[in-house]
Design a protein around this nucleic acid. Structure first.
Lengths: 193, 193, 193, 193
DNA sequence: AATGAATGAGGATTCATTCAT
DNA sequence: GATGAATGAATCCTCATTCAT
């Protein structure tokens, strides 16, 4: 009976290493060898488990988005009011699990990847649709018909704040970042910030 | 008699070609040869005039930002009221000169470049500082002390809308994009959108 | 209770798979993994039973030549006259067991392998010697002293017709192929074809 | 004014080196680096001038066949009788320009390449058609209606003798090889060899 | 007996960059 | 001013082979 069940372990290690390397380099110009080395294996094995560099990138993208999705779901489950739901979405977007140096860098680079790679584009589209859907659902009781337009503004602001983080030299401050977006939310719902 | 004074002509052609190629490829994975070919010269000449690929990219970045800056200045000059000034900044951000497929793609990629390249980072920082400064200046008469916070929100929203454009398949619609941001402005200044 | 006596079964499966894969690819650029997969086992097991890729190829070669040899022997046994013996050899060369797409391709590639691999070269030499010997033996009563020269011509023509088949797109036609060679035989023995 | 006109020189050097390397290795398992080194340049330059390894192989193939074609044409031009024409074709097939260790090895390997590569297949087909056409043309006055069948036999024998050479350890002996084929020709035309 | 796991050693191809002319 | 020529250094990917289980 051979040693078995390494696949998920290796794939996971590679995905994490990919995100870390993209964060470290700040770009997708990361070699499979670098990723594999950080993940503690040969580049040949990385290819064995993923088939190609693109697949590695896509898996990393799915991972980042899955984490974000989980955080949003968790926050939503804990919310009790409509406003609480919207705030939860915003706060989850800048929670410590997602709003980290390497994740931000990865996210930014996935936007670039989506320009070229159809699967990447589809993944990002799914993320945007879900975000909008979640926002609209939470906003409807608060702003009625304007929910869609408001969701658009909130969503864009989230993305903007997120992306801008990629330029800052300091460590990400999720609370402060969330406050910027929550400021918009407050306005939209008639509460002067 | 050798042609003289070619330098600015060549450099300009290369800069335009660079932006076009980045737009076409959707990434910085553009070869000097591709750029040079589109600009109608040999890659050796491109190096002769710029020294390195990085310098070509930086020049392209400066070009994109110069165009944007000029549009903002022009719009500001035409504005007569404080609110008009702010609206001018927002509209200029999505004017036909800047809000184009290739420019958006280039802009997005410059964010990535800024992760690695210090000069690129500095250039983007300058852009952000100017944008904030312009916004604050225009917003002060409208929102007083909240000017800085509002500028932060408006700026982030501009960037968010801009970046999101990179994912859409359709041709950029500057007016619609500007409206999203103007919606935030309206709220901030107490005008229900 | 471990299965026992698998060795011959596995080896045979691998040999057949090798010939099939060489036929499918049309070259020796066949991976051990491909061969093993077709044979229904892991590539590790293929190595276990053969030691190296070269040994697999050689075994396949021996197999192809063994089949050919058996067919020649069978045909010779059934022949009653000297002329019949020679015709039997020719016909056996293009019988349905040997004159098949994949066998032809394999044969051609074994010629190539023989350029590099000494054992392969020896195997092919054995085949050629046997063929010549058989032909000479059958031809002696028919053409006397010229037997050796005639055998050389007949042998070369067999090989030529065989190799040429590798280029044709259609399914091998053994009867027609044999007729080409038998035409030479007829001439050599004074029978106008 | 840059150094110019290297293309044909480099391409020619590469083609010769390719044939030599295939001859030396006895197979198509030749690296571009090996070829380039023998041709006195970097492998990058080889790619620059040919685009891909396949193109290098095809060029080598064309070269080998062009040499052969030229020799046939030259020999045909010198022939005065119908029989002389046919003999010229046969002799040219084994002339010192074509019947050399490396050419034979290359030729054999091109047969293999033709299994995979469509252009290679087409090239070989052209060669076979020309050979048959030339033979038929020369044989018509000698054997009338049987010309086609005879050409087929002669052609196959040429190929067979040629390929068999790939197995022999000794230096090619064109005269002896030609004699084998001429033996068939003699029979076909009613002259006892 | 059998195989998943793992890797070292290449190999084709690309590209920024330099240089002689 | 301009360019063809040239290359060193990567980079992705493949594969035969080994090994622990």
């Amino acid at each position: 009976m051979p040693k078995t069940g390494m696949q998920p372990v290796r794939r996971d290690a590679l995905v994490r290493a990919t995100i870390a390397e993209i964060g470290r380099m700040g770009s997708l110009d990361v070699t499979v060898a670098q990723i594999a080395r950080r993940a503690g294996m040969s580049s040949a094995l990385a290819h064995h488990y993923f088939g190609s560099k693109d697949q590695i990138f896509l898996a990393a993208m799915r991972h980042v988005m899955a984490i974000y999705g989980a955080e949003v779901r968790g926050a939503l489950a804990a919310a009790t009011t409509a406003r609480g739901r919207v705030e939860a979405i915003v706060r989850a977007s800048f929670s410590t699990g997602s709003f980290r140096r390497d994740s931000v860098s990865a996210w930014l680079n996935f936007y670039v990847l989506a320009q070229t790679n159809d699967q990447a584009r589809r993944l990002l589209s799914v993320y945007q649709r879900r975000l909008r859907s979640n926002l609209v659902h939470g906003l409807r009781p608060l702003v009625g018909d304007r929910a869609l337009a408001v969701a658009e503004r909130i969503g864009a602001t989230i993305d903007g704040v997120y992306i801008r983080e990629a330029l800052r030299g300091e460590a990400p401050d999720g609370a402060k970042a969330a406050d910027v977006v929550l400021g918009v939310l407050a306005l939209e719902t008639g509460v002067m910030p």
